[in-house]
Amino acid sequence: MAKVTFIQFSGDQNTVDVDTGVSVMKAAIDNLVPGIDADCGGECSCATCHVLVSDEWVEKTGGAGEQENSMLDLNPDREANSRLSCQITMSEDLDGLVVKLPEFQY
């Protein structure tokens, strides 16, 4: 198990426990955390699972892959720490991960 915290645009926070090996997107959906739409169900093809990785975790989560980058580029509001949460897999290393949610999904 590992913990991940979602910080809503409004400032509200949800912390959930997830099995390792599960994506951050799925952690949100399974625990009814609002703010992630995940329309494509994790295929890296909708960009509606956008999160902003908090600064201290950017290094550990690593950068976006090629397909992920091209999806993120469709969003004019992407930031340097933008990721698609279906492409981040929870591991022991990421226990305690904190991500922020954008104002809305594209």
Binding site: D39, C40, G41, S45, L74
Partner: peptide, 21 residues
């Protein structure tokens, strides 16, 4: 159905429906 939002009715990409939700 599983993954019910996996459809094209709102389009995809930069013009993806703004009013979907």
């Amino acid at each position: 159905r599983a993954k019910p939002r996996q459809h094209l009715s709102f389009g995809f990409g930069i013009h993806r429906c703004m009013g979907n939700r």
